[in-house]
């Protein structure tokens, strides 16, 4: 090398994400504006794709007439009931499978066999059993929530660090206390992740079940509006579903931040 000075250029930049706080809002607003513009200029025929402001006014009309709250309230009641039932039972079985060898030996093959069934396929059977009313819909949702919750809870218990369990044993902690103090808190992140997935499944199932046989509910609203070519109401229903999904995700996020502060 000749004896000349060469500055060393910086070349390590570029791949770390940096926050762009307003970019997402601007993009969102941009899409809405473009949509609105396309509708106003007639590029998007109103009959097939209503403009954002038509959707908003459909929401306002349904809100004023109470129709919106009837559909929304019905769907939320079904989701909450089905989710609570399915999650509670799923947690019980999943934790049992994670903790007890016998429960695992018996439960795991059954759960693995039934897990892949799309639960909406069971709705006709559940309607035969329970009738077309609320029970069959809630049961479909509960089943849809039950399996992913059980599998997530079992996997989460499996994932609890063995060294922590051995540590507790070495301090003479009784088995029941090891479950309460090591296994459950250690499995909590995985369990909450499973509940997040289960909640999105519940939303899919409530929509599908309400499209198959329901008078009220957001799924029934969307289907009915489609049959009458009321696309503004149809898209309004889709917006409601999207908002419900966001609300669920927000709620679980809140739970995670509260319960998993130690992470």
């Amino acid at each position: 090398m000749p004896a000349e000075k060469q500055p060393v250029p910086f070349r390590g930049a570029g791949f770390d994400p940096t926050p762009r706080r307003f970019a997402s809002w601007i993009a969102f607003a941009g899409i809405l504006l473009a949509w609105q513009a396309a509708s106003s200029t007639g590029l998007l025929p109103e009959l097939f794709m209503p403009s954002p402001d038509a959707v908003l006014s459909a929401l306002a009309r349904m809100s004023a007439s109470g129709e919106l709250w009837l559909h929304l309230g019905t769907s939320i009641r079904r989701i909450v009931l089905g989710f609570l039932l399915g999650a509670f039972a799923g947690l019980l079985l999943g934790l049992a499978m994670g903790i007890f060898s016998m429960a695992r030996a018996v439960g795991l093959p059954i759960v693995s066999a039934l897990f892949p069934i799309p639960k909406i396929a069971l709705l006709p059977l559940l309607i035969l059993w329970f009738g077309i009313g609320e029970t069959s819909k809630v049961a479909t949702i509960a089943l849809g929530v039950f399996f992913p919750t059980a599998v997530a809870a079992k996997t989460a218990v499996d994932g609890v660090a063995r060294n922590l369990i051995r540590m507790a044993q070495s301090f003479g902690t009784p088995a029941s206390a090891i479950v309460w103090k090591i296994v459950l808190p250690g499995a909590l992140p995985g369990i909450l992740g499973g509940l997040r997935i289960a909640a999105s499944i519940a939303l899919i199932l409530v929509t599908a079940a309400e499209m198959i046989g329901a008078e009220y509910g957001v799924g029934a609203l969307v289907l009915g509006a489609g049959n009458l070519m009321q696309t503004d109401k149809l898209v309004a229903g889709v917006v409601l579903l999207s908002l419900m999904g966001l609300a669920v995700s927000f709620g679980i996020g809140l739970l995670e931040r509260r319960l998993l502060r130690w992470r």
Binding site: N163, L164, M167, A168, T173, A177, K181, I182, W262, R263
Partner: peptide, 23 residues
């Protein structure tokens, strides 16, 4: 332990307390 084996969800004092509980 070599890997410390601390409970990440417990504070320092509560980690120390673990060995004293159930006695």
């Amino acid at each position: 332990f070599q890997d410390f084996a601390l409970l990440p969800w417990r504070s320092v004092a509560d980690n120390v307390a673990l060995g004293l509980e159930h006695h």
